[in-house]
Design a binder for these strands. Structure first.
Lengths: 251, 251
DNA sequence: TAGAGTCAGTTTGTACACAAAACAATATTT
DNA sequence: AAATATTGTTTTGTGTACAAACTGACTCTA
């Protein structure tokens, strides 16, 4: 028997009574996205439409739209008549994703060096600071998340939204890869400091920044080894509640 | 009054009575995708759900899913309560897309050189041949389409599906850019021959292939985008031109 | 006991209906 | 006559119902 639980709070913003229109789908999307990318939902977890619909207090129609979108982004896997599950990247996919990141990030870094301003670089330093704090307190989840944020924010300085969006997709899929294959210890970008590349950029050293990026990404890939894990069926509903609460706190 | 027309034939395959399941959505998607990318539907064209639903003899539900997918690929634009239209890339988007293609194609070409086989190169030569044929007979639509096919098929030789899929998306958006800003004459890849790069690859000249790709993409971009320079209201300008031309023809 | 078949329960796919928003055209007011 | 208000039509957004497909357990048979 499924106990009835009160729906997840999506957080009506700006004094609206209830979240409505596209804002609601967006909120649901963000919640699920965060749950997957921040590794609260293990790869392979089933995502039944009814459960999600009840959890967010909407009809299956809205849920389907969100799942469809996540499927396009390759974060969930939808099979005919079989529903959606959190995607499990294969080893080849994992390699392809990292190779793609090397191409994209190394290719865009020259523009970043050309267009970076001290103010923008300070924003990046702030991300690094928070990343180090999370790491210091042992919050591996947050530290992985902020590491991804750093890479995307860095490339966004290139001013090319198209390439930045592409990278954002690759980074979120990287999180899934780390979730499936990541070794318990390393995982994130601990070996080399993100600070270093900021100094290279500040110095206007485009080629140095490119080399750093290449080396850095190879190290990250190498630290994610091929370990297999078997997930037990988790309490989907409880996890979603937790993530939603976290989201609410962040506003 | 709308005349009732018989539905579009989706082509039931392998002796099935009617196309069903995900195959039907896929078929509808392909039809719409081709219509947009091959420039049968002008950028800005409205795509009302009812019309499409009737045309393909399905309910709006299926149409919505397809439009959603096309929106994710940035080929159509969906605005709240306002429906879907064929996307109209801005000038900045156009530049970003070509810059992204330079990064992706130049970044992946080394792997292509490393992994290309004579058989695969022959397949590419076949595409070039068909492209030249289309061009010779003045079929601009087909020649643009095959030009895009060539670029994607080339990079697919790298063996990296992730980067190939990304490029496929960029190439289809390029077609939209050509449709919105393309000059009547040039447009496609006529200046330099695609054959050249195949010879470089066959010779194992990775750096030469990279330089060719860079140069080639810059030429394509130059032949397309730089004609229109007002980012304020490009569509208004186009419409006014059309109206003026129509007026002139009516006299 | 292993295997095939059947049947109920669950989950997804698709159509449809109704509500809400945008649009267009006419009416109203100054 | 211009600007605004109003009303009717069209189009989109969302929930719900029903059909089809899958899942898993149970039974029957060899």
């Amino acid at each position: 028997m499924n106990k009835k639980r009160s729906p997840i709070d999506l957080g009506a913003l700006q004094g609206e009574e209830t979240v409505t229109g596209s804002g609601r789908d967006e909120a649901i999307y963000r919640n699920l996205y965060a749950a997957i990318v921040e590794n609260h939902l293990e790869p392979g977890t089933k995502l039944p439409e009814d459960t999600l619909a009840e959890a967010f207090a909407v009809s299956r129609t809205s849920i389907r739209k969100v799942l469809q979108r996540l499927a396009y982004e390759r974060l969930v896997d939808i099979r005919l008549n079989r529903g959606a599950t959190v995607a499990q990247p294969t080893v080849k996919e994992a390699r392809d994703i990292f190779a793609a990141r090397r191409i994209v990030e190394c290719g865009a870094i020259a523009q970043v060096v050309a267009r970076a301003t001290p103010a923008k670089l300070d924003e990046l330093r702030d991300i690094v600071r928070r990343e180090q704090e999370a790491e210091a307190r042992g919050d591996r989840r947050e530290s992985i998340f902020l590491s991804g944020e750093f890479h995307v924010a860095l490339i966004r300085l290139s001013g090319n939204d198209t390439i930045s969006d592409i990278l954002a997709g690759l980074v979120s899929r990287s999180s899934l890869v780390i979730a499936t294959y990541g070794s318990p210890m390393s995982g994130s970008c601990r070996h080399t400091e993100h600070h270093d590349v900021l100094d290279l950029i500040a110095a206007g050293d485009a080629e140095g920044a490119r080399e750093w990026t290449e080396r850095h990404l190879r190290e990250v890939e190498r630290s994610v080894v091929l370990l297999e894990e078997n997930p037990a069926a988790p309490d989907l509903r409880r996890i979603l509640d937790d993530v939603a609460q976290r989201q609410r706190r962040q506003r």
